[in-house]
Structure formats: structure tokens, C-alpha cells
Write a protein that binds this DNA or RNA. Sequence first.
RNA 1: GCUGCAGUAGCUCAGUGGUAGAGCGCGUCAUUGGUAAUGACGAGGUCGGGAGUUCAAUCCUCCCCUGCAGCACCA
Length: 649
Amino acid sequence: MSQITITLPDGAQRSYEAGITGGEVASDISKSLGKAALACTVNGEFRDLSRPIEADADLAIHTLKDEPQALELIRHDCAHIMARAVQEIWPDVKVTIGPVIENGWYYDFDREEPFSAEDLEVIEKKMRDIIALRDPVRTEIWDRARAVAHYEASGEPFKVELVGMIPEGEAIRMYWHGDWQDLCRGPHLAHTGQVPADAFKLMRVSGAYWRGDAKNKQLQRIYGTAWRNKQELKAYLTMLEEAAKRDHRKLGREMDLFHMQEEAPGQIFWHPNGWNIYTTLQDYMRRRQRAGGYVEVNTPQVVDRKLWEASGHWEKYQENMFIVEVDEEHAREKAINALKPMNCPCHVQIFNQGMKSYRDLPLRMAEFGSCNRYEPSGALHGIMRVRGFTQDDGHIFCREDQIEAETAEFISFLSKTYQDLGFEGFKVKFSDRPEVRAGSDEVWDKAEAALLSATRAAGIEPELNPGEGAFYGPKLEFVLTDAIGRDWQCGTHQVDFVLPERLDASYIGQDGEPHRPVMLHRATLGSFERFIGILIENHAGKFPLWLAPRQVVVATIVSDADAFAADIVAQLRAAGIRAETDSRNEKINYKVREHSVGKVPVILAVGRQEVEDGTVSMRRLGEKHSKVITVAEAVAILREEATPVDLRH
RNA sequence: GCUGCAGUAGCUCAGUGGUAGAGCGCGUCAUUGGUAAUGACGAGGUCGGGAGUUCAAUCCUCCCCUGCAGCACCA
């Protein structure tokens, strides 16, 4: 037996016989470490404690203290324990896959009968029984034929398929706890008792397609969440509740911003408060775009199918379009139109009017373009994913050699916009040529290089999405992060070589010959509807003053202050502030509560004292204390704060 | 679109095979009250839509619509 040297993370070295396991080393270091050990990392490879170490190695023993490894192991073992629990309760259920995901895991099962909420409780209880058994986890490497034969014999067709998907040369590893067995890459805990029995919870059941393909069989997926201890689980559940409190659908109702109803699924009825946010945002974008050298246009909603055929939408996008047929009986003519799902073909029509010269380029054309798309019913979600929406759309017609400068210009435009709207940072994703594409490799080379270098020049290193570009050109996607760390893809910037060709756009170059322009499709917010949803959730309804629909409420404490309040509101309105009085016959506590729930940023309370002194008691949303200042001071402060960010100085 | 769940007063929700209840909100009256709910009284729904079973359906069955969660989709 040869001796090997094990080097621990602190640099300490220990000598053992070759073939010793990580678990044995842990026990040798100390009895308590031996107990606490969950798994180990050997020369950078995350492994089971039970695997022998044959040569000199760096070794790190993982315990519950190592958060990422511990969570990975716990969740992974939860997945297996859940699958075992399900098969022990319903032996005829077929197992498929059960990966670790953010905050937990899921496992997909094939079972005729749907799992019910009560079933989840039963499964959860069974899981705790399995954990209490403290069954050791055992592993073996099998050859492919044996694994296939085993799963065929045990009637697990999905596992047979999975074995077939494991690449040649990769070990086929089998795991057991108790008699239950699963195919798995590992690693796993040393025994089932290492899963904290009070720190996991089954969350929900849903359908999911086998291998993520809608053409395949639909399986039943059970989601669970698991943590290192009860406190972490509780913190996570509390966080979910907090996130639910900012749900834009709930706040939209509470703040009286909008509503939706079943006669118009996926479309929004904007109430005065919500429309105020919308127009404030649109006014802001319009000023920014004008300053950015865009010309604003507006194009038709209902457009003949001929244009969609020419643009390619009829062929590629028809499923998502609202088709409008006018029949002969009523109109004495037959016409098939479609509501526009995108603005680009219409913009090319404007570009195509008259002759364009190279001197006209780059031509930056913007439209707050209302579009309608027949989104699948299951995709609809509040005002975030709708069937009728308005994009802050724009198309830049330019020469190939202008792509880089225009891209840089747009990135700076977008970056300022996000900053103005209260978002700290954003990520950029770069998608390059897909397999099936239009345009020559040479043109793609140029376009990709231009996008990349413009992004890098802006000091941004994009995340690469190889092969994910549109068939007509490469694209950048801009993802912003909200106040609670969620990512939202909003902006987009796409190079398009195809549409100008299909719709025959051209300009006369310096050489007197016609040339094809390149089109850059770009949007900053994406759609107003979705972006406002994001804003609501980002601010939890507490909008900065300039965006808030109702900026100030002047609330009277006694009715003797009614006239004074009305006068203050008149002064505030004259200063351009959205203000209203609340002189209802209610107590000040009641009014403060109601307007706080309604997320009004500023309440000015006025009673006898204020009338006498010409002051107001200013209370900001969420603050406990109010401040007494003169009316003139209040107007001056609020005027400044209510000014849109881009107009301030 | 697929799977599952849900749809009762403006909102949140309870409830029953014999035509329905609470809190908040709303209205009226009283109260003029200092920074997150003053009190009393009152109005308000035929229980998402359609069909069926039944002497009788909001409650059971079927179909449809809409919503929610996830999957798929997001050109």
C-alpha cells in the first residue's frame, strides 16, 4: 500500500494510505468533523465522502457551514428522497429527472392520477420518515448495458432514455439509499439523516413536458424548497410573502391604477392614476428621444395582409396575430387585414416614401407604437405580458459602417434612461448568428464585430448567447435588476439585414447608385405596460414624486381649514404639482392611513394652527414624523421634486 | 396552447341540495377629531356563462369563459 499526501484548505498536510475516503479523513481529523461532513471537494471536484482517494490530493471537507455546497447537497438529496417517497407510496409512478434549482429542487413524475395538495402532505411526511431512517447513501458505477437492462426490467422507460443520453466516456453512476435506487451524477450526502427534516417544504405541483418539449408527454412536476435550517426556510418563505406584497396586480388595484376584465383578456383599462404614470413616462421618453435625434411617427393599426406577406410576418408570425376579416356581405368587398404586431414594416413604408439620400442617414424613426399580439392564454400575466401594448419602438436606418456608432449611441441613451428611472445597473446579453440565418457570413462578421466593440467601448462586457441571434441579424438584450434582485429583460437592439431587402428599402449613395440600408430595431423600455409593471414592483408602489400619480394630498384636520386647504392645492397645481384636497368628514388618522395605503408620497395636514400660521404639516410616505413648514416652502420643495428628472437643475 | 387549482357583494373571504353571510369599502346621520381605521344605522349579490341531473342547484355532472401557479411560447 502506497502512502499519499492529503493537503487541506489551510495548507496542513496529512499522510494516508492510498484508497482512503474523504469521510475517513474527516473522521480522522476529528470525530465531530466526521459526523458533520456532508461531502468533499477533491482537486476541485465535488464528490461523495465515500469515494476513495488514490493519489496525492487537495481535499476540502464540506459541512453545513459551506453554504453553496451544503444547499446543493441538501436540495439534491431532497429530490431523491422525494422520488423515493413517491415511489414507496405509489409504486407504479415512473421517475424521470429531479434537478436542483434556485432555492430548491423539483422532480418530474409520470403518473396518471394528478397529485393533489393532500398528496403533497403525505409525501412530505414520508420524506421525514426516510430522513429519520438515516439510510446510508451508497454508489456504484455501472456499464451502460447493465443500466439499460436494469431500467428496462424495472419498467422505468424515462431512465432508459436518460442512460442513452449520457455521453460516451462519462461514468454511469447509480445511487441507493435503502432499497431505493436512482441514476445520478452525484455527489450525495453520506446518509439521508443529513437532510434537515424541518428545513424543507413541498411548494406546488404543475405540469411540465418531458425534456422541455411541448411535443412530448406532459409529466407532473413537484417543486420543493430546502435550506440548511428552519430559520433559513422561514426567511425564504417570508421573502416570498414580501415579494407578493409588491405584486403589481395587487398594487394596481390598491392604488387604483388599472383593471382588466374578461371581455378583453390581456388588455388594460387604465384608470386616471395609472394613466398618469403612463403619460408621465411617455412624456419623458418623448423628450429624451427628441433630444436624441429621433423623429417621431405614427402608423396604422389595421394593415392589409399583403404587407405582412411581404414582410414575412404572415408566414412566420401569423399564429400570434389578430386577423381582421371584413366579409363581403357587410362591406361589399372582401378584405383580410391584421392588427399590427410590430411596427417595423410600417416604418419601412415611411422610409420608402420619396427618395432617400445617404445624407439622410442615419435616420432615427421612433413611434410609441400600439401593437396587438395574440399571446398564448397561459402566457398572460397582469400588465406584464398582455395582448395589447405600446412599445417605445424605434428603427434606425443606416449604413453598415454606422452600426457601431449608432449602437454606442443607443447604449448611452438606454443607460441614462434606466438611471433616471431609478435602476442601478443592467446587464447586456449578446446573441450572435444562429444556424439558420439570412445574409452572408461577411456581413454577419461585420455586424457582430460592430455590436461587440460598441458594447465594450461603453465599458460593458456582454454575456454571450452563442447562436441565439435572430435569423435576420445579431442582437443585444438589456436586462435590468430591480430593488429585490430580480432580472427583467427590457431593452433590445437588433441588427436587421433582411427586412430592408424584403420591403425594398433603398437610398442613393455618394456614388449615385441605390444601396440597401441596414435597420436597427431598438426599444429601451420594451413596452410601457410591462415597464410600468416593473416600476410598480421595483418601487413597491412608492413611486418617486415625479412619477407618482397623486403627488400631494392636502388633508384637513378640522373643517375650518377647508378654505385654506383649497388655496394650498390651487398654489400647488399652479406650480405643476398633482395635488388634491381631502376635506372629508373624517379624522386625520383615518385620512393618513387611507392615503398611505394608497401610496400618496406627501400628505400636507392642515388644522387650526396651520391656518393661523400659514404653514402645513408635511408628512412623507412611510415616515413617522411630520415637519411644519410654510406654504411657500412646501410649494418650492415639492415643485423641485416633482419636476421630471430630465428637466431638473 | 398543456397540466393542476380557482371564480360567491367594489375588495378580502366564509357557507349550504330547499333561492346567502362577515369584515373592509359605499350611503345617511351624529361627531370637528392632530399624523396608519370615531360611532350608529342603511343600501348592495340570485353565487363567471350555458346545458344537464333533481320536486328543488350557488352547492352534483358536462361544456365554455376568465384568472392563478408551473410548463411551453416571448418572432
